[in-house]
Design a protein around this nucleic acid. Structure first.
Lengths: 324, 324
DNA sequence: AACCGGATTGAACATACGTGCAAGGAGCCG
DNA sequence: CGGCTCCTTGCACGTATGTTCAATCCGGTT
């Protein structure tokens, strides 16, 4: 057994690297590059795609700091967060919105995550969308930790959640830490007991000391039903209880009201997501929101001070600013 | 008088920014972007060019660290420098070589230079070529300092050198410090006297404390005549003296031999470039070389330990490694 | 108000680029 | 040694992008 890299792979990458050099740093046409590399133009096109996909080429966009859009400035001033407004035409559907915001986030994420870091991630449609596009970036000694369990009455949830987790993991070359518990326990006592198990508490500790948290928002009572409510995670009675408690949203299956409060929301006792008091210790907490249906939920999360960095589509951002 | 930015400029930049967002982060086609921005596709193409040219979009290429080319590794091991080999086909002319290496350097330079830094730059065909392509990057409180005088019998040299200097200055938003003296004094005493003038000594001090030096190499006795020898800077007699002293090259009009030594080279007493003992204190000293005609000169500069970072075209790099 | 550069715009054209496809390997059984 | 699959390659085609040019707009001047 040897440590050599697959020579074919390495050949390919070496070529991709020179191709990228010639294309992006020397402005040669793919045709010219093809001649220098003794191959066809189409292969060069493919090499360059490969270079971009694998993060060999890194394209960043830098706001000249003096020109964050008016919207971003307002959000930053009003909520004390770093805001990133993703331009999406007002006519776009909510699906488009999510897809486009997710794509933007996926491309930028590498600027936040680095070697020796631990990032906690939730799961759900937002995280799923992001995971499908993350641009790879090689890191060392870094960890991706699942924030909340994903099991329900029908499945252990390991498939869906770990797919998401896995995509982040391979993109960053990070170890992944799954959280093999249901989204909600039936009995709070089970949770307490499990939390004392070393295998689980190790994970809880990692969550408590992570450098970055990345999450979307659940919004139980708005048009688009978040995955948590659709997938058999909650019974009708539980759902009604949330409604009665005036819940407006959740982060990693921990629920909150419009004012950001969580006290007396019974379901949280059985939820596996990190308590907000813990979450708030994470230095960078990136929230991704797309679509106006999540507006109430977003207001609540802001009130709960769960967010340090917000990625949001333009029209939702506008709505957020206007109503305040 | 107001501090507002030209609203037209700012409009343009804002659009360029969103266009860049949509194009590079969301993979929209220019056509789609045109519709969102209510303009024509060609305008979007222009906006994107603008965004790239002004450094709004920053494209980096990251060697996965495990894959610096064989050549780069050898150079780094042998000379204790950071090497960047620029791929250029062996068939390319020396002019092409220079142009392509310069373009690469111009694109990468922003990764080295930042706010609050001082960079010293020489002048000559290499620096000229680089200056014509530097990708802008906004910095604050940074300085560009001219390393050596550019005047000669016919002109003050302020035009040519300051054009170069100016391009770097505007690209980085840096203050520029010209060096209004000839390349060589006739009398060493004049130099000594001037060096005591506060206006000049201030500049010398800046050179002594700069963070980065950027220079090409002169190679008096090889095919392509460096600007120093062509432009009326040296008399026949001086040229002969250099030859007799076995000089192989110069950095900022300070001459050295193949072994890197400078002792007893009379012309250096009258040269306005920084002494090597001073130059070597600069933490990062970036040398840009293109063309095998500069090989001897490059060997000397390496022997003189003037270089910490080398940018060189592929075939010159190969020649350098092979002959050692 | 009429006039004049100079900059900006969209249409049209000319390139350059991405991708489906069929052909040609390279490895892997049977 | 076929015969199989899976992967890579170059070609051909359609689309996306860069660029020229004439028309238009704008700010300043007479």
């Amino acid at each position: 057994m040897t440590l050599d890299i697959d020579p074919v792979q390495s050949d390919r990458s070496r070529d991709a690297l020179t191709a990228a050099h010639l294309y992006y740093l020397q402005d040669l046409t793919m045709d010219a590059i093809a001649r220098e590399l003794h191959t066809s133009r189409s292969s060069v096109s493919r090499l360059l795609s490969h270079a971009r996909e694998t993060g060999l080429v890194d394209i960043q966009i830098k706001s000249p700091l003096d020109a964050p859009s008016h919207l971003e400035q307002q959000l930053e001033a009003r909520f004390r967060i770093e805001a990133h407004v993703v331009p999406v035409p007002d006519s776009a559907s909510d699906v488009d919105r999510l897809e486009r915001v997710a794509l933007s986030v996926a491309r930028i994420l590498g600027q936040y995550f680095d070697s020796n870091m631990t990032m906690g991630i939730a799961w759900g449609s937002t995280m799923n969308a992001i995971s499908r596009h993350v641009t790879p970036k090689q890191t060392h000694n870094s960890q991706i930790v699942q924030l909340n369990g994903a099991g329900n009455m029908r499945t252990t949830g390991l498939g869906y959640a770990s797919e998401i987790l896995g995509r982040f993991g391979t993109a960053f070359g990070a170890h992944i830490q799954q959280f093999p518990v249901p989204a909600f326990f039936d009995d709070p006592a089970t949770k307490k007991a499990l939390w004392r198990e070393r295998s689980i508490s190790r994970l809880i500790d990692m969550q408590a000391t992570m450098d970055i948290a990345l999450f979307g928002l659940g919004s139980p009572f708005s048009g688009v039903i978040s995955r948590v409510y659709a997938g058999g995670y909650l019974e009708k009675a539980e759902f009604d209880a949330l409604s009665a408690a005036q819940v407006v949203g959740d982060v990693a299956t921990v629920f909150y009201r419009a004012d950001g409060s969580t006290d007396g929301i019974a379901l949280n006792e059985r939820s596996t997501g990190p308590e907000f008091t813990v979450l708030r210790r994470t230095p960078r907490r990136i929230c991704v929101v797309a679509g106006r249906s999540k507006l109430a939920s977003l207001r609540g999360a802001l009130a709960a001070r769960l967010i340090t960095d917000l990625f949001v589509d333009e029209s939702t951002a506008r709505a957020l600013v206007e109503a305040s």
